[in-house]
């Protein structure tokens, strides 16, 4: 953390990662070898609109990922945020907007702790246990909710048997109305290829 941020209430909220106040860094925060951030409170920006331009110039293109962390603490912020978005496109910054100082601090913490993380977390997750997985699959049908999924599984016990069941059998389950049954079997029968 740059020494110039030492009075920022944000650093009181940095609880999950250790930090160090240093005087000789250009950006406000350095979260990793290639990641840095500039912090901007919109209230300050409205008073001193030229500040952020100067800071962006100072930082230059030293880091691969440069984050502009904006704390929204004024009303009707959209026009300012749009302007900042344009600025970010021009200077290749990533704009992150936070509603509160805590949220802003959380973003910084996450940037630090994700420094070397793989993208695995972004590539979709699979439910853990078998029953949950079955229920997840069933609730992918738009009209089926969790209760219905449990009803179906407890009545027919497997997906294959649900698929074999007739509409009338499905409709005999409590909670499954005509609409749900129609939809369920329509999707089961709909050809994959259009």
């Amino acid at each position: 953390v740059s020494l110039r941020q030492k009075d920022n209430p944000l650093i009181k909220e940095l609880r999950n990662v250790p930090f160090q106040l240093v005087s000789d860094v250009t950006p406000d925060f350095i979260m990793g070898k290639t990641t840095c951030a500039l912090f901007l409170s919109l209230r300050y920006h409205n008073l001193h609109p030229e500040y952020i331009h100067a800071r962006i110039r100072e930082v230059g293109r030293l880091y691969a990922l440069r984050v502009l962390l904006v704390q929204v603490d004024v009303r009707h912020a959209q026009s300012v945020i749009s302007d900042l978005a344009k600025l970010c496109v021009m200077h290749d910054y990533t704009l992150i907007v936070a509603g509160s100082i805590r949220e802003a601090a959380r973003y910084l913490e996450l940037y630090k702790s994700f420094e070397n993380k793989s993208a695995e977390l972004l590539q979709g997750e699979k439910p853990a246990d078998y029953l949950a997985q079955l229920v997840t699959t069933l609730t992918t049908f738009k009209t089926i909710n969790k209760t219905d999924a449990v009803t179906l599984l407890s009545t027919f016990s497997s997906l294959a048997r649900i698929a074999k069941a007739s509409k009338n059998e499905l409709a005999a389950c409590p909670g499954l109305g005509d609409k749900k049954v129609q939809h369920l079997s329509a999707i089961l029968d709909r050809p994959f290829l259009k």
Binding site: R15, N16, T34, T35, A64, L65, V67, Q78, I81, S82, A85, C88, V89, D92, Y93, T94, L95, I96, V97, R102, E103, R106, Y107, E109, L110, Y111, S113, F114, E115, K117, A119, L121, L122, E125
Partner: peptide, 30 residues
């Protein structure tokens, strides 16, 4: 927010996304 860092939140995923795609700009529009 909770006092501990949770990695399976939207916030965390968004951070990770920007880390992996530094070229990606974000527009926030209301």
């Amino acid at each position: 927010l909770g006092s501990d860092l949770e990695f399976k939140t939207t916030l965390a995923r968004l951070v990770l996304l920007t880390l992996h795609f530094p070229k990606l700009r974000i527009f926030w529009c209301n």
